[in-house]
Design a protein around this nucleic acid. Structure first.
Lengths: 206, 206
DNA sequence: CAATGAAATGAATGATCACTCAGTTGAGTC
DNA sequence: GACTCAACTGAGTGATCATTCATTTCATTG
């Protein structure tokens, strides 16, 4: 097993032409750095080395492009958390450690995508938000299921599962805002520590 | 002692004319809801019931207005954390509980201001960011001092104080994004729970 | 080598952007 | 009742915004 780290801006996606993939990657970087509304179509296309109008060969609108990015980020996040649960054992603490690690890692490996997905969801139209809501809800439900099960069988003990999950998720969500590959704490350490914090938060008080 | 909750958009500020205060409050609400770049000068001044040009009687520019709001939020946050430390006893766990409670409460009582302060710091110019940096740094240092002291005297035990503080702060910072006064969990419960989580994170493993 | 079609150009569209400024309003002061 | 002054109006400025579209480029295919 290699300890190789990936610092791509976009997770692997099928059915994506090279030109589209390059557009998406650039958009993720610029939107992630400055925000959707702060980046103009001219800014975006100049960064790719093209004219503004070329955007509309690939997407219907700037708004539509954002939708695709947020959708991509939300689905990727769900995929990673889902997989982590599948690869965990049946013990609730192991499961929680697994999904929190996946959650944090997703936000650190693809920081710009995570920033866009988190920050710019409110910039989507109501219809667009509805289209993304399901995938996000499913990810939340996985956390809820794991914590609830841990509470039922006595592994965890916490006054409010909702608050605990919000707190746990917050650590990972915020991580993409401050962590960089140059940080003195390597990604693996952050992932490990934050997973431990999650377990401490829901730990049974004996 | 009353248990009265305040849901104003702006903390009390001296030396502020009524017209300016109204402008600031509206700006905090609109910028907090949609983001600085998504709100035009026309949007902002229409919400106050004035012409766009009237803005420039009160501030030099839209950018300058943002600077004042972020500065306000950053200083208020520091004030609250500072005060909480002063009002705590000498025991590190009590101090940590106090400053975390103040941190979370500041983000819940003034959600829009917190959102603007957190999200839009990157929208400031470099000079403006530098002007805000000191106040923010001082707040961080308070957390650092409390945790470090707790570690030295054996109350706390954690592999990395930096990571623990980031995690603890994240819970409060994110809270202004999801909590509302209509939430089933009242503010006091969130504040109390999150303070407890903070103590659990840095707790000595015996 | 002619035909095709995906990809991008370059110039234009009207709308909206932040911002300016000379003039108006109206409440308070001498 | 003339004067002051903070607050705001209303009509504009040029720049930039997202978007459109007829045309061009160029690698691939028949």
């Amino acid at each position: 097993m290699t300890t190789e780290q990936s610092f791509n801006t976009m997770p692997p996606v099928e059915d994506l032409t090279e030109a589209r993939r390059r557009l998406f990657e650039t958009a993720i970087q610029l939107f992630g750095a400055s925000g959707f509304h702060a980046v103009s179509v001219k800014d975006l296309m100049t960064a790719i080395g093209q004219q503004p109008g070329a955007l509309y060969f690939h997407v219907a609108s700037k708004q539509d492009l954002l939708m695709e990015l947020v959708d991509l980020g939300t689905r990727f996040h769900r995929t990673q958390v889902r997989r982590a649960l599948l690869e965990s054992g049946s013990a609730a603490p192991d499961q929680l450690r697994g999904i929190v690690a996946a959650h944090v890692r997703a936000h650190l490996e693809y920081r710009d995508l995570a920033r866009v997905t988190i920050r710019e969801r409110r910039s989507l139209t109501e219809d667009q938000q509805a289209r993304v809501a399901d995938a996000h809800q499913e990810t939340t439900q996985i956390f809820r299921d794991v914590v609830d099960r841990g509470i039922r069988n006595g592994d965890f003990q916490v006054p409010s599962p909702e608050l605990a999950i919000r707190a746990i998720a917050s650590m990972g969500v915020r991580a993409c805002e401050w962590w960089t590959p140059e940080d003195p704490h390597p990604m693996a350490e952050v992932v490990d520590q934050y997973s431990t914090y999650a377990l401490k938060i829901v730990a049974r008080v004996s």
